[in-house]
């Protein structure tokens, strides 16, 4: 089946959600996104990395170089307090949006 494009504006939300559990590097995030979406989403690194950099610039994420389990070096991103707040806000917003859309679709 053809993979889905990630809906506009939800990539940040998903990145923040994944990083809320544990710090992770870019490749790890893309892998987790694929797994968690049951392979429905194809994350293009060409949009993943710009998002990571912008979130870091806004102070939502903090990055540091660390060794991976396989002893490579990778840049790990973790959520800051401000990122956690943003996640809560986005999540709550998303819940409202998806509830509203579902209601319309089922009510029509």
């Amino acid at each position: 089946m053809e993979k889905l494009d990630i809906p506009q504006g939800t990539l940040d939300l998903m990145i923040l959600t994944i990083l809320a559990r544990e710090p992770m590097h870019g490749y790890g995030i893309s892998q987790r996104l694929a797994v968690l979406s049951h392979d429905q989403f194809h994350v293009n690194p060409g949009s993943l990395f710009p998002s990571l950099y912008r979130l870091e610039q806004d102070g939502k994420l903090k990055a540091e170089w660390r060794p991976t389990e396989n002893n490579r070096r990778a840049k790990y991103y973790r959520l800051t307090a401000s990122g956690r707040r943003q996640l809560e806000q986005h999540r709550e917003r998303w819940n409202r949006v998806s509830f509203a859309v579902t209601s319309v679709l089922e009510g029509a």
Binding site: N70, R72, A74
Partner: peptide, 17 residues
């Protein structure tokens, strides 16, 4: 340099997989 290293690391990990 940082960006380059990060993307190289991405490719390395993807290739290893």
């Amino acid at each position: 340099q940082d960006l380059n290293d990060e993307l190289q690391a991405f490719v390395d990990m993807a290739a290893a997989d």
